[in-house]
Design a protein around this nucleic acid. Structure first.
Lengths: 171, 171
DNA sequence: ATGTTAAGGTTGTATCATGCAACCGATGAT
DNA sequence: ATCATCGGTTGCATGATACAACCTTAACAT
């Protein structure tokens, strides 16, 4: 795999079957089960190691990133999107507000909600944090072939999408 | 993607390049960075959802699993292996001891250490937990092609090995 | 219009995983 | 012998999270 061919790579893959998961080897899930458990601890360690110079933990990061993309929204919408308990979202928001990363504005349509909006410096900060994290992973994986990096990102994404979808269907 | 073709799937992909990691596209790490952040939250949610009937959280699971494989060891060795602070390992061990999953025995060679050993029922319990987790993932990923499942396990493992190695080199 | 139900948020309380620092007793090296 | 080191425990702190009780405001039904 990953032969250093000079000019290009041609990959042909064929899968036969119904297309729907036939019975899949159990060993496949042995690995997934174990590696996910380990991965979690690993990633936790990374978190504590303080990935970026800027102090911005995972949850805050995801929260701000969402506000950046989806404009001012209320806590409920935020919590739904991030699949967090409202109380958790509320506290996290409060923390970010006290740090000056988030502002509240009354919703003219509904006096119950207070819309959340990121403050001016935040987008630049997010960019920096993102850069720093990417650099971290780029260093960590600097000996991996590009294809594996790409595939890892892709499969994690796919996993996340699958899990989100399932959780919504139930929750 | 994943079209329900009747007889099979033929996929052709071509990539040009040297094959060896030149400067790797930055986008690759965009995805990794983001998806890992999300993955962590996802997996956290899974934890809280109570994966298995048996109450055994991730840390306890990894700890017991290690003791199962590596026989009686002291807290320090355990902490080193799991890359945990000794205090954390100490507390987790205490918790497991109080639940009767772990016993201590004095080390004849060194009165400071107390060797940890899993109790009789534990292996069966671990097997059951493992089965239950695997089932969970198998259900979650039941629409994935087997190849993707396999690859996900493989890459997570590779990631974990890489991260472990790096951390040891420094820590 | 008015009273009941629902929805958006906040706050108290609890749990879990984790680390650092202070400490204790046993070891070992000089 | 003594003093640094090592294994381990415990106090304190933090962060992420949930559930439940509560408050305020909105929506709806009669």
């Amino acid at each position: 795999m990953h032969l250093p061919s000079i000019n290009g790579k041609l990959e042909i893959r064929m899968t036969f079957g119904t297309g729907v998961a036939m019975e899949m080897g159990d060993e496949v899930f042995d690995a997934i089960e174990m590696e996910i458990a380990i991965f979690m601890r690993r990633a936790e360690a990374v978190r504590l190691a303080g990935l970026s110079g800027i102090e911005l933990d995972r949850s805050a990061y995801l929260l701000l990133r969402y506000l950046e993309r989806k404009g001012p929204v209320g806590i409920k919408a935020l919590a739904d999107e991030l699949q967090l308990d409202i109380s958790t979202a509320s506290r996290q928001t409060a923390a970010l507000e006290s740090k000056g990363y988030v502002e509240r504005m009354a919703d003219p349509q509904d006096a119950r909600v207070s819309l959340l909006r990121i403050t001016d410096g935040v987008p630049a900060m997010l960019t920096e944090v993102r850069r720093s994290r990417k650099e971290f992973y780029a260093k960590l994986l600097n000996e991996w072939p590009e294809e594996d990096c790409r595939k890892l990102g892709e499969l994690l994404g796919k996993f996340n999408r699958t899990a989100e979808q399932r959780q919504r269907r139930r929750g």
